[in-house]
Every structure is written in structure tokens, then in C-alpha cells.
């Protein structure tokens, strides 16, 4: 028998689970192997030290205290039921609001878009120059300046009125 097997048999022997044949083989090995004898003594000492020498009693009135706790738990039961379901209700409501909001944002019908100036000029054949065309077509500079001065009278900011 090798020491590994002997250790296994040792541990079984501590629980009285070794049959007589194996027990005899173990004893024979231990007579020749001081290392396994030492190991056996260590295991027995450890198991002895693991067990508490005395187990105290539970604290006094164990059953009475337990019954009081059970009664408290039963009384808190209905409130706890509503608290638990309130959490679910709040969570579901929040989820519904978020989904509703997302739905509105994603599926909102688009308002008709106003055409830009460029799109108006191109698609509706508008003249980009507008009133400026008549001013720019004047051959004389003094006529052009006069028309620009009159056009800028509409501007309420005096600093922005045309000055030749």
C-alpha cells in the first residue's frame, strides 16, 4: 500500500467506514511508515480540536421570540404585498410613458416644409434680383444712387440707410 492510499484509508477509518480487511492493511502500513503514523495523529488531533467542547443553549425564550417575529411578518404581509405591486405599477407606467413619447417622436407626421429662397427661384421661376433689377438697370450713377436712397428709407435704423 502506498502512502496516498493509506491516507485515504486513514480518513475513512476516522469515520468507522473501513472494512476489517482494509483496516488490517492500513495497520500493517502504519507499523512501517512513521510519516503516515504522524499524519494519522495529526488528523485525530485536528478533528478533536474542530469540535466545540460545549455548545451553548439558544438565548432564552427562543420560541416566544420566534412567534412574535412570525406575527410581525404576517401583519406586515398585506402592506408588503402592495409595496411590491406598487413597484411594478410604477415601472410599467414609466415604460408606457417612454414608449408613448418615443412613438410620438418617431411617427409624428411631418409639417409641410417652407421652400427656401433658392428652391423658390428654381422651382417657381422667381427673379432673384426682384426690385434691385430696376435700380441696377439705371445707366446713370446719380439715378441709381437716388433710387437706393429712397429704397433705404424703409430701414428704421438710420446708420444702415444708403449714403453714396
Amino acid at each position: 500500500m502506498d502512502c496516498k492510499k493509506a491516507e485515504r484509508f486513514l480518513l475513512l477509518s476516522l469515520d468507522g467506514r473501513l472494512d476489517p480487511g482494509k483496516l488490517a492493511a492500513l495497520k500493517s502500513h502504519l507499523e512501517q511508515c512513521s510519516s503516515c503514523r504522524k499524519k494519522g495523529a495529526e488528523y485525530r488531533m485536528i478533528l478533536d480540536l474542530v469540535r466545540p467542547q460545549s455548545v451553548p443553549e439558544p438565548l432564552p425564550r427562543f420560541k416566544e421570540r420566534l412567534i412574535a417575529r412570525l406575527k410581525e411578518k404576517e401583519q406586515a404581509g398585506p402592506a408588503l404585498f402592495w409595496v411590491r405591486w406598487a413597484h411594478w405599477a410604477v415601472a410599467l407606467s414609466l415604460a408606457a410613458v417612454i414608449l408613448f413619447g418615443a412613438g410620438i417622436i418617431l411617427f409624428r407626421p411631418e409639417e409641410p416644409r417652407e421652400l427656401s429662397r433658392t428652391e423658390r427661384f428654381l422651382l417657381q421661376d422667381e427673379n432673384p434680383l426682384g426690385d434691385a433689377a430696376s435700380i441696377l438697370s439705371q445707366k446713370k450713377a446719380e439715378d441709381r444712387n437716388l433710387m437706393l436712397i429712397f429704397a433705404s428709407f424703409e430701414d428704421t435704423d438710420i446708420s444702415r440707410r444708403y449714403r453714396p
Binding site: 483496516l23 492500513l26 504522524k38 488528523y43 485536528i46
Partner: peptide, 24 residues
């Protein structure tokens, strides 16, 4: 068995008592 071996390994050399007879 693994638990007992682990416990003994943790205690190797710390209990300070020599090994003795097998006592079986």
C-alpha cells in the same frame, strides 16, 4: 476527504505537537 486534507495542509507545522502512535 478533500476538506480534511485542506484543513491539515493549512495547519501544517502550526499546531506544534509531534505525531505519535497510530492508536488504531
Amino acid at each position: 476527504h478533500r476538506a480534511r486534507r485542506k484543513l491539515r495542509e493549512k495547519l501544517m507545522g502550526r499546531l506544534g505537537r509531534p505525531g505519535g502512535e497510530n492508536g488504531l
